[in-house]
Design a protein around this nucleic acid. Structure first.
Length: 211
DNA sequence: ATCCCGAGGG
DNA sequence: CCCTCTGGAT
């Protein structure tokens, strides 16, 4: 996609959603981190069903460690990959206490050193909790980038680096959420709603759907 | 490449 | 039934 097309692409997404936000429920950098860890291969709606009770029981690393893996597991059993996630949440909470005074670090390397936290999760925390202009490439953004021709790549990292190059600076801060929401509600995986898409004419995929 | 793994949609 | 959902570690 040409630079002028990319700028127009984001101008329209920005117009349709002036103040995009995450749909995950959270109350602090720590609860955001836990919610994002839980959201791997799971829907935000599903995560939001489980987290209110979990955070009522433990909203800090110390309380989470005290709660323990078995009880954490019970709170999140309705979410996919729950055994691994329960283990990681308790382990990363211990590390936050040992290495970071119970705070969520602001450095990518320190975030990615936590169990269950990879590049994508670190990017979400940096963007949402700390206002960094990072773009976390998840299943939605990977699909939207490749399908539309906005930013193509074989891996999420390739798409992320390409997006950082082509997205105009003024849109970098919120590009992550604009693309996610576009993917979730319009550029849907199985049945894209091209008939109501505001960037249809800029998209490489246009015309390939049967509505 | 494979494992972890529940809920909802089509 | 099969696919998808804000992946990460081995």
């Amino acid at each position: 996609m040409k630079p002028a097309g990319v700028a127009e692409f984001f101008r329209r997404l920005a117009e349709s959603r002036p103040a995009p936000e995450t749909e995950l429920r959270y109350e602090s950098p720590y609860t955001l981190l836990v919610a994002v860890v839980l959201s791997a291969q799971a829907t935000d709606a599903g995560v939001n069903r489980a987290t209110p009770a979990l955070f009522a029981a433990a909203s800090t690393p110390a309380k989470m460690v005290k709660l323990g893996e078995a009880k954490v597991r019970d709170y999140i059993k309705t979410i996919g990959l729950y055994r691994t996630k329960a283990k990681n949440i308790v382990a990363l909470s211990k590390l936050l206490i040992e290495r970071h005074g119970g705070e969520v670090p602001r450095q990518r390397e320190e975030l990615e050193a936590l169990p269950g936290v990879g590049r994508k999760t670190a990017n979400v925390v940096l963007n949402v909790a700390y206002g960094e202009p990072t773009i976390a490439v998840d299943t939605h953004i990977f699909r939207v980038g490749n399908r539309t021709g906005l930013a193509r790549g074989k891996t999420p990292l390739a798409v992320e680096l390409k997006l950082e190059k082509v997205v105009p600076k003024q849109y970098l801060q919120h590009a992550h959420h604009w693309l996610i929401l576009h993917g979730r509600y319009t550029c849907i995986a199985r049945k894209p709603r091209c008939f109501e898409c505001v960037v249809r004419d800029l998209c490489a995929f246009k015309g390939k759907t049967v509505l």
